[in-house]
């Protein structure tokens, strides 16, 4: 119980750190937020307008006062209003999050599924199968999503137009971005999983299970896989981070709705509340994922004490 409290406190610390860093980054980057509020770089506001907005949003206050107000508002769950869209940040995120969740979930499922299949099927099998699998994983895990995305577009939308190149309505538009987002993650995961599986298949209890009459495949599925899940769960944080980072690129490339694209637009337009809101949301999910990792590892491995 005490440990749980400590972890929650640490989580709050992480959120505060993320909020502060974002605040600093936005403050010191080029461009004037007031211009963003008044309609972006093309707007030609009068000095009166500028002064008025400055006062309204508190930009005339010393930095530490701005920071204090900002943290205070966040602590109360108020993330402010988007400069550009003129709606509360929570509402703006709410509108976009569905599409990103859809993409992230389907990509995560595909990546984990591919990684598990490739690891289970190729670990300690025929050396040639193994070599081919591990070479393709290496290529995939080092290919950025946008390169894969462009290749997929070229082949499946332009050469053979079987799938739509852009948009975010309907399952057809989900396929190509999902693949582009999932493949690098799958490549990385299956490298880790295969290594883990091969270590486990060397363990004496595997030989013992074989001596009870289990087949090669049954031993993998009934004994070894559960052990391999431990690093997979531990890597959830990495998976989440890759999905988020990949989502920005993928959503742009396939012209999809979503948080990633919104984040990029907001950053370009210096729409500080939106950038802050998304950053904090990501940090929150990250903290949550890592708490969940501990719980799951405790469930998978009885030797791990719940922390």
């Amino acid at each position: 119980m005490k440990q749980l409290a400590a972890r929650l406190l640490a989580g709050v610390g992480v959120l505060w750190g993320a909020a502060t860093l974002t605040f600093v980054a936005i403050h010191f980057s080029a461009g004037d937020p007031v211009l963003a509020i008044l309609g972006g770089p093309d707007a030609i506001p009068t000095p009166q307008q500028l002064a008025q907005v400055r006062e309204e949003y508190g930009f005339d206050q010393p930095l530490w006062v701005q920071y204090g107000r900002y943290v205070g508002r966040i602590a109360h769950g108020d993330f402010g209003e988007s400069y550009r869209l003129r709606i509360p940040v929570t509402e703006a995120i709410g509108k976009q999050i569905g599409a990103t969740l859809q993409l992230a979930l389907s990509a995560a499922l595909l990546a984990i599924g591919l990684a598990l299949a490739s690891a289970v099927l190729t670990a300690k099998r025929n050396p040639w199968v193994r070599r081919v699998a591990s070479a393709s994983e290496l290529v995939l895990s080092s290919s950025p999503s946008f390169v894969l995305g462009i290749l997929l577009l070229l082949v499946f939308s332009f050469q053979w137009p079987v799938l739509p190149p852009a948009g975010s309505n309907g399952w057809q538009t989900l396929i190509l971005p999902t693949i582009a987002l999932a493949l690098p993650i799958a490549g990385m995961l299956s490298q880790v999983l295969r290594q883990e599986l091969e270590d486990i298949l060397e363990q004496p209890f595997i030989a013992m299970a074989r001596a009870r009459g289990l087949s090669q495949t049954a031993v993998r599925l009934r004994h070894a896989l559960r052990h391999a899940l431990v690093p997979l769960v531990t890597l959830s944080g990495f998976i989440f981070a890759s999905l988020l980072g990949g989502a920005v690129v993928t959503e742009m490339l396939f012209a999809r709705q979503g948080i990633g694209r919104m984040m990029l637009d907001a950053a370009v337009a210096k729409d500080a509340p939106v950038v802050l809101g998304i950053t904090l949301l990501a940090a929150l999910v990250y903290v949550g994922v890592n708490l969940l990792v501990d719980v799951l590892n405790g469930l998978i491995d009885p030797r791990v004490k719940p922390r």
């Binding site: 363990q203 209890f205 030989a207 013992m208 001596a211 009870r212 087949s215 090669q216 004994h223 030797r303």
Partner: peptide, 27 residues
């Protein structure tokens, strides 16, 4: 393989070295 699997554990029981390592720690 299949015939061996039918034999192992059913007709031939095996107690391997190292009881700690020979039992699956997660089961």
């Amino acid at each position: 393989d299949r015939a061996w699997q039918a034999l192992r554990g059913a007709q031939i029981g095996f107690v391997m070295q190292d009881a700690l390592g020979s039992l699956d720690p997660l089961r």
